[in-house]
Deep mutational scan, measured.
Amino acid sequence: MPSETPQAEVGPTGCPHRSGPHSAKGSLEKGSPEDKEAKEPLWIRPDAPSRCTWQLGRPASESPHHHTAPAKSPKILPDILKKIGDTPMVRINKIGKKFGLKCELLAKCEFFNAGGSVKDRISLRMIEDAERDGTLKPGDTIIEPTSGNTGIGLALAAAVRGYRCIIVMPEKMSSEKVDVLRALGAEIVRTPTNARFDSPESHVGVAWRLKNEIPNSHILDQYRNASNPLAHYDTTADEILQQCDGKLDMLVASVGTGGTITGIARKLKEKCPGCRIIGVDPEGSILAEPEELNQTEQTTYEVEGIGYDFIPTVLDRTVVDKWFKSNDEEAFTFARMLIAQEGLLCGGSAGSTVAVAVKAAQELQEGQRCVVILPDSVRNYMTKFLSDRWMLQKGFLKEEDLTEKKPWWWHLRVQELGLSAPLTVLPTITCGHTIEILREKGFDQAPVVDEAGVILGMVTLGNMLSSLLAGKVQPSDQVGKVIYKQFKQIRLTDTLGRLSHILEMDHFALVV
């Protein structure tokens, strides 16, 4: 994948999101292997301009796509893939009243899908469409860049269908997702969380590099694949309309690839034109409109599966009536509230959605109805927002919020430890010299600072030695090549209790 991002070429006709291997024109390309080798690009942008032909009021008969309808489940399912879809609609009884809503608040519980998330729908649909058009064949390999849930859905379907599955996901995604993927037989590649989507090191860039190296491999490409919004247009939206008897006044959905909100909203605009569509985008993402909503100094966020630093091709923002931004604290607070007060075992993005819903639905009156999409299960986040310690460490809970008995030293300040200034190293000294210094002084790690004293990161003896043994660096290389740029900081005025929580999850903390 090139470091400079080429513009994806656009073909003359058809839909841009065809499933299957992508040609340089962004659509299915038939021909000899030699032709494909000559024409197939190194990668295709996940934010390529959409060429979708959908228009409100256009006859369904003019759609270029294969459409399906929700099917009634048999008493005995032939395999677990038949437990994807037909998820329950559940009334939220307490939270709406707590925040003064007059309307009825309903939750579409997508964590009841077989793999635990709304992404099971698009995973199965992308595979079925690729099999139907002859792209996927027995023994082929599926590769997908994902925040985890699409990966789980694909790995689940691949396990049943017999495909090899490789999932490329950023490091910030939970260990629970990784464990589930491994249990399903998927191979996992992790990428830096802070890598831009168009960087060769991003999950998108690495996935395309693997595709170019592995024979008979395919990126189904949830960011561009029409099967993504079509899955929701054909099934999720129809289920909502049936469950609500066609009567709903507002739908609120958090947005990642945009397939969920695009597919549902398009069908609702056709069948229930008075329904307002509300999009939820986390602070630090750029999906919301108008652009002024996205202006923030924050560039990272903890909530998973929603928000991006690019506009995915499948996201149709014209069908969203209003956007709201959400933050991590309210997302996790509301997710825990949904679990504790409503018994809905949902993930953090569901918290984002409901946090926005109780604001947006203030305009609705008694007798009206708001539906929220709860995308995934708490299963993926047992060591994250479900953990009091994690919430404390991230600053989303305060010590006084917890009532468990603490040891005698818990409320003492870090400054009472009488710490001395640490050994520091410059980023320009060599790895070999740094190892000598650390061994001589008896230290395992040291902060790396520039000549102005600005902290650049941390270097550890173990990481340097393993990097040297693996051949990633040489003793003569500058130590700046092996620094940890993500590390926890703590102030002298913070409590030892807070430091204790940090050290339970990290090997060190830097006192500043």
Rank of each mutant, 00 (worst) to 15 (best):
K119D: 01
R91S: 07
R266C: 07
K36G: 02
T262F: 01
I264Q: 00
P273E: 07
D86L: 05
C275Y: 00
P64V: 02
I92Q: 03
T146M: 04
P145T: 04
A157Y: 09
D35T: 14
I240K: 00
A207V: 02
T193Q: 08
V10P: 08
E270R: 03
T193I: 09
T135D: 03
E270S: 05
I261H: 05
A38T: 14
G100K: 08
L251M: 12
S174A: 06
H218M: 09
K82G: 10
T68V: 12
K172H: 03
A157N: 08
R51H: 08
R18F: 08
E37W: 11
W208R: 08
S3E: 12
A207P: 01
H232A: 03
T235W: 11
I214N: 05
S61F: 09
A237V: 14
V168Y: 04
E4M: 03
C275I: 14
I166D: 04
G116A: 09
G26N: 10
K72R: 12
G258T: 00
I166N: 07
D234A: 14
K172Q: 07
A253Y: 05
D245H: 08
T193R: 08
R132T: 10
R125T: 05
K267G: 12
G151P: 00
S123P: 07
P200F: 07
E171I: 12
T135Y: 13
M169F: 03
A158E: 02
E176V: 07
E110L: 03
G85Y: 01
K94I: 02
R182M: 04
R276Q: 04
E9T: 09
A38I: 04
S73V: 13
C15S: 08
A48K: 10
G263V: 01
L136T: 06
N216H: 11
K36E: 11
T257D: 00
R45G: 14
A207D: 04
D234W: 03
I264L: 13
V252F: 09
S73E: 04
Y223R: 00
A60N: 11
A69E: 11
I127Y: 06
S27Q: 11
K137I: 09
A130I: 01
V204A: 09
D129P: 04
S123W: 05
K102P: 04
K269H: 06
Q55E: 13
L105G: 01
M173T: 07
S23I: 12
G11R: 13
